[in-house]
Design a protein around this nucleic acid. Structure first.
Length: 277
DNA sequence: CACCAGGACGGGA
DNA sequence: TCCCGTCATGGT
């Protein structure tokens, strides 16, 4: 969670994380801590108590966010026997693939992250969030939530470009907002396809969404662990670093590696990314 | 000023 | 289908 100091959608504080999120149509501020290694506590920081139904919704969001239902033993068995991954287990044992359960947020994050360094990508996300998202203040800190797609109905390309998005990014963000707001594209639809390739085809049909973005969304939102970011510059650099190479790996070398990670490509990628920060 | 960054697209072979 | 030039914009 501490990966980026520029993260604007949650705040780390005293061994826990605070986050503003929409629950049952209302913005609520929640806090998550781990009192013991076996327990995660989710509490409400302000407002009326949650109904039982909304409590369940929140619980399932948190389970999804941190991939809590996943049995990682098979991954660790595979990684232990892998020369590239086994050293990572010592440092990151227990790390789960942090998700982005909201499809619109995941797509936007991937779009702003295309071909720019992460520092700048975080800035773009922050500008979008502060400009169009909801916010609340608690104990002197302002918390922000990522905007909902409906918020972009009357937003123009020029507005987005003034936040330093490129024209292509502005255009595809507005298009994504439109088709999600209209119900044309939903996370449940993509999951119901129950077919990674079909989901990829559906996503890449959108202008501005290429293979990298589609796999990124499969990995972070649809929780498809076979997603592989073969063209990801960050992954290339991570492998170069871990393997002690003088150059970045070739596509063929990457294909060989991914072949060894069958079924856990996304976790391997997520663990490798960690060495960069 | 050059090169890089968690790419996408379109034209041509 | 595959390769390659081009676009685009802040960081370092």
């Amino acid at each position: 969670m501490s990966r980026s100091p520029f993260e604007c959608l949650y705040r780390l504080e005293a061994d826990g994380v605070n986050r503003l999120m929409r629950l049952g149509g209302v913005m609520r501020l929640i806090r998550i801590t781990c009192p013991t290694k076996q327990m995660m506590r989710v509490e409400l920081l302000q407002g009326e108590p949650l109904s039982e139904e909304i409590q369940c919704e929140l619980a399932s969001y948190v389970r999804d966010w941190f991939d809590l239902e996943r049995n990682l033993e098979p991954f660790y068995r595979m990684a232990n026997a892998d020369p590239l991954l086994s050293p990572l287990l010592k440092s990151f044992y227990g790390l789960r693939l942090v998700g982005i359960p909201d499809l619109f947020e995941a797509l936007c994050w991937a779009i702003v992250g295309q071909q720019v360094n992460l520092t700048f990508a975080y800035k773009l996300k922050q500008r979008l969030t502060e400009e169009f998202g909801e916010a609340c203040e608690w104990e002197g800190i302002t918390y922000h939530a990522f905007p909902v797609p409906e918020r972009f109905r009357d937003v123009t390309m020029e507005q987005l470009c003034s936040l330093q998005l490129t024209k292509n990014k502005a255009r595809s963000l507005l298009e994504v907002a439109r088709i999600i707001a209209s119900g044309e594209l939903t996370r449940d639809n993509l999951l119901a396809l129950n077919n990674p390739k079909a989901a990829e085809i559906k996503l890449t049909a959108i202008r501005g969404i290429g293979p990298w973005t589609a796999h990124y969304v499969r990995m972070r939102c649809l929780r498809d662990l076979t997603a592989f970011l073969i063209a990801d510059v960050g992954l290339h650099n991570a492998i170069k670093h871990v393997a002690g190479l003088e150059r970045k790996p070739t596509i063929v070398e990457l294909q060989t590696l991914f072949a060894h990670w069958q079924g856990w490509e996304a976790y391997a990628t997520f663990y490798l990314w960690r060495v960069l920060y």
